Amino acid sequence: MLTIQPDRLDLQPGDRVLDLGCGRGRHVYALYWGETPVHVVGADLSESEVHATANGFFELPPPPESPDRSASLTAADAAKLPFTDGSFDAVICSEVLEHVPDPQAALAEIVRVTRPGGQVALSVPRWWPEKICWSLSPEYSQTPGGHVRIFRERQLRDAAERTGLAIDARHWAHALHSPYWWLQCALWRNRDSSRRVALYRRFLEWDLLKRPLLTRVLEALLNPVMGKSLVLYFTRPAA
C-alpha cells in the first residue's frame, strides 16, 4: 500500500533515493522492484523495523538485474542523518513528521541531503480525519511512538518552504482507511477483540490484495474528500 507515488518523482536510472522513516519497507520495496532501476536507501529510527524490512527482501523474487539497482538499510535519526550534503536525487518521508519531536529539524536534514534540483515527497495524516481520531480516543495520540501533532496542509507546506523547497503537486490517499481508524478509535479499549474492527481490517486486506475496479474507483473519488493522508511533492531549487 503506497502513499507516495514514485512515478511522480521523475526518477532516472541510477538515481539515489532515500526513504526516510521506511518502517517495514513498503516504499523501499516499491522503489527497488520498480520499472526504473534506482539505488534506494531505507532509514528508520527503529532497528527492529530495519531488520523486518531486511527480512522482507528474502520473501520476494529478485528484480531484473541492473548496475543501476541496489538497496541498503540503516538505522538513523531524522534530525541527524548520517549522509553527506546532496547525497540523494530524491527523498521520500511518508507518515513520519507527525511522530518526530522537531519536524523542522527533520525537514532541514531532508533538504540538506537532497541535491540541488532534487525532489522531496512528504506525507502526513490529513488534518480533519486525524482530528476525528483524536476526538474519539484520547489514548490514540498517547500511544508510545504514536502521533504527537496534527498538521494542517498550510502548516506543512510553510514548514517545507521555510527550508527552501518549492511546491510542485499534492494529492490525498487511503480514503477507505479513514473509517477504519475512526472505528478503531471509537472502540479503542476493545478494538483488538471487536468483530467490527476485524471485519473492516479483512476488507482492507482483501482490497489490497485483489484491487478490484469498484473499490479503486470509489477510493479515487473519495480521496479528495476524506483521504486519510495528505501528500505533497517539492523540488529543491537548483539555484
Rank of each mutant, 00 (worst) to 15 (best):
A52Q: 09
V38R: 02
G21N: 07
A79Q: 15
R157S: 13
H147I: 09
P103Q: 00
R162Q: 13
M1G: 14
S194Q: 08
A71D: 08
G42W: 04
C185Y: 03
D19F: 07
Q119N: 14
V217C: 09
H51A: 14
A239S: 14
T84K: 11
E153T: 07
P63A: 14
W33C: 05
V124I: 14
R191D: 04
L214C: 06
V111G: 05
F83C: 01
F57T: 09
I167Y: 10
R189A: 10
L222F: 11
C133M: 06
G117W: 06
Y32E: 08
A78G: 13
I110C: 07
Y200M: 14
L221T: 13
F88Q: 10
G146Q: 02
A121V: 11
V197W: 03
A79S: 15
P13G: 07
N55A: 15
F88K: 02
W33F: 12
F58S: 15
L20Q: 02
F57I: 06
L232M: 14
W128F: 15
Q104I: 01
L187V: 02
S72Q: 15
W172Q: 15
A54P: 07
S193D: 15
Y29W: 06
Q142W: 05
H147D: 05
G34E: 05
G34M: 08
G34Y: 06
H39C: 08
D19L: 08
Q5I: 08
L156F: 04
L11M: 09
